[in-house]
């Protein structure tokens, strides 16, 4: 299963990088989204996927062992990453909207100078 997910991540990265290298700014943003999803998956995979129990402590117990549950630490990290990703997405979309409104172009090659239009 790890091999399958690894190939899936590789595919996501390939698509993401290809999108990043486009000149259209909309595609660039799509690329950022794809890559951030792929990166989250890498972190998730690093915790291991051999166990798949929910990382809760049972009602009666005081502590839990990691033997049955998914590693909670990568989850916490990814959770943070997803939320920050949301913030970045909102910002980048607003920026793009304004950028297009101001410059009238979505071609990144036109953006090499600071004083546009």
């Amino acid at each position: 299963m790890e091999l399958v997910i690894a190939i899936f991540i590789g595919l996501l990265y390939a698509s993401g990088v290809y999108l990043l290298l486009r000149r259209s700014i909309v595609k660039l943003i799509l690329g950022v989204f794809v890559i951030s999803n792929a990166t989250n998956l890498i972190i998730f995979l690093s915790g291991g996927i051999t166990r798949s129990g929910v990382s809760f402590i049972g009602d009666e117990a005081e502590k839990a062992t990691l033997e049955t549950m998914t590693d909670p630490l990568p989850q916490a990290l990814i959770l943070t990453a997803i939320v920050i990703g949301l913030g970045i997405a909102a910002y980048i979309l607003a920026l793009k909207y304004k950028y297009f409104e101001t410059t009238g172009t979505h071609d990144l090659d036109q953006l090499s100078k600071t004083d546009q239009k």
Partner: peptide, 24 residues
Amino acid sequence: PISQFFAEKSYLEGHGRNIVNVIL
């Protein structure tokens, strides 16, 4: 890995049963 630490302490010291949430 330090995950074992969280699994052990999260209820005793963090008073929460959802380990991910207690970490956060």
